[in-house]
Amino acid sequence: MGILAIMVLNKAGGLIYQRDFNEGLKKLSSNDYLVLAGTFHGVHAITSRVSPVPGSGGLEIMESEHFRMQCFQTLTGTKFLIFAQPHQPNIDVIVKRVYELYADYVMKNPFYQIEMPIRCEAFDRNLLAYIQPRQ
């Protein structure tokens, strides 16, 4: 499977976690990542409003020639963005597992301050251990 990158956005649209899993990705400056996250947050809010279907949850999947992006929004408003290769199967399962890891290793860590950037070594380690063998 080809997972390219994972991002986590807090409910205000701030980028709290970003990690690349593919060597070939173009590196952006940390400021650019923040802008990207903020822009996506805005677009997501707009799509949920302009949707013709009432009660829409907003943008979920975006597909392009080179990648496919899946967004998963939790009930609390935290967003998980997964960038994968175009025909990657079972992204739902991966998203769910990443959410689970987040709930375990970030939310149960007494040293993590909510809504702040994630700096949890155990989360990094377990995320990598989950993604790497599936690449």
Partner: peptide, 10 residues
């Protein structure tokens, strides 16, 4: 401590 990551400064 299975879910706890200690920050570097501690």
């Amino acid at each position: 401590s299975s879910y706890i990551s200690i920050p570097k400064e501690m």
